[in-house]
Design a protein around this nucleic acid. Sequence first.
DNA 1: TTTTCCAATAATAATGATTACGATTTACTA
DNA 2: TAGTAAATCGTAATCATTATTATTGGAAAA
Lengths: 136, 136
Amino acid sequence: MNLQKAWGILKENGFKETTKRNQILEIFEGDERYLTARDILDVMQKDYPSMSYDTVYRNLATFVSLDILEATELSGEKHFRMHCESDHHHHHFICMDCGKIKEIPLCPMDMLGAALPAYEIDNHKFEIYGKCPDCK
Amino acid sequence: MNLQKAWGILKENGFKETTKRNQILEIFEGDERYLTARDILDVMQKDYPSMSYDTVYRNLATFVSLDILEATELSGEKHFRMHCESDHHHHHFICMDCGKIKEIPLCPMDMLGAALPAYEIDNHKFEIYGKCPDCK
DNA sequence: TTTTCCAATAATAATGATTACGATTTACTA
DNA sequence: TAGTAAATCGTAATCATTATTATTGGAAAA
């Protein structure tokens, strides 16, 4: 997703255009890795030394709820990245060295068949961890 | 896994048999749900009011490292349960209401094919979340 | 442009999970 | 049964995250 599309979604939902918000989005646009709230704060505080955690967390939550960002939990910390452009459902390989991801086109739910009769399935997580060719 | 087998592993690795350790294992043996460190402490403090977090966390980490317990991260908290008996690799459906699990016999890695050439795959996570028939 | 309104932010403080550490106790060994 | 290393206690520190309240700033109306 790019900045323009993100702002379209934000505007549609009545969110104001602020410089901080914009800069957070710019960080994600220019970085394909999964980033933590702290990562964002560290970058932002170069320009805005008084930037607070609250602002970071609040905006990250907003972005996730609007599907501008996607989130996952890696080793106990929430990590965020721009939502994928791809329109089809997919999963991710995540490089534990550089944090970059690669899309995996398959979804295990397709092969589930009748393995869970009478169960209510609300969600699923499939992620592969390792090292990308560059880091190997 | 049962208590006896767990103690076999612990003894093999030079760990001492203590009442606390034993009681933590008993809790897991009698509960098929994923439990948190706090869950364990709450139960233990009925018998040992002075039981400390350190003891709980240290032992949970020990048990996981010896494959006596398995761990997963659910909504930001580490959860633990007895390692499955099944000898074949599998994954879990987890009921977000009661915490009980159901084994899923399939593994998406089998269908991965050549989707990740030149990548080093160290680990993967596949979990399905929802409600079990009892909680639905 | 100025005013006004309300969302957004700053500046903490609080919370909840986890880890750390010196002092003390306990389980095993000889 | 005494010695020793491991285990535990008691407590404090740390780390991520959330909550609170006062203030600021964007945008629309006057």
